[in-house]
Write a protein that binds this DNA or RNA. Structure first.
Lengths: 111, 111
DNA sequence: GTAGAATGACCTATATACGAGCCAAATCAT
DNA sequence: ATGATTTGGCTCGTATATAGGTCATTCTAC
């Protein structure tokens, strides 16, 4: 019995559905059959079906892998761009306090 | 016994690591403790740790949910923008043949 | 300084995603 | 037209992600 039923926000689900569609479009543009792409990713065809549907329960690594193979750019950035962004993000984290303490008032000052 | 050991491309892993960092940064900016964000997502703190590390084996839905809650945008688009993009993607898919057949020559004509 | 909160790194049991297989429907090649 | 291929939608068993702890460490508020 499912101890906790999981819920997903509409925004998250729509983003996932979009990513799935983009992967499917990319696959078709490259003229790969579902079977072919599944093999390149290293998953079964049934799992690729779930990826292209935007099923929230697939491994995120598989979804990103599929995106990478068919040329869907995450954060519209290439490999170098990703690395640079990661470095910048690290810098911004480094400035902040290491631990966050529960605030009585939600501050939430947007950067 | 692991039937198939899974591998991930460097690009995919870096993208995941970046997403994890951005989620962590977003959480800190909003002054949420790990425990608090975990509860909002509906996962345990240990799972959130894996999300922020960019572990490829977490559910993609959880990762997107975390991103949505702390305001990390994957497609820099709001809800309406996402919906519009999805519609546009559907249109582009609709133009293509319904089935892709294995091509002797890889055509891969970049649109 | 110090107490207490937050975090990092583990470990185990259990719910569950994935692989593999199947069938039926759709659609393309010829 | 028709045979071949792709795809969608199932089902089931098994490998595995997750929840839920524990302990040690780091940091912050006071």
């Amino acid at each position: 019995m499912p101890t906790t039923k999981r819920t997903y926000s509409r925004y998250g689900l729509e983003g996932l559905a979009l990513l799935g569609k983009m992967i499917r479009l990319g696959r078709m543009q490259r003229r790969l059959t579902a079977q072919e792409l599944a093999e390149r990713i290293g998953v079964s065809r049934s799992t690729l079906q779930r990826i292209e549907k935007g099923d929230p329960k697939v491994e995120v690594g598989l979804m990103f892998e599929a995106a990478a193979i068919v040329g869907v750019k995450l954060f519209d950035a290439d490999e170098k761009g990703i690395t640079a962004l990661a470095a910048r993000t690290d810098d911004r984290i480094a400035v902040l306090p290491k631990h966050i303490y529960k605030a009585g008032k939600q501050v939430d000052d947007d950067f």
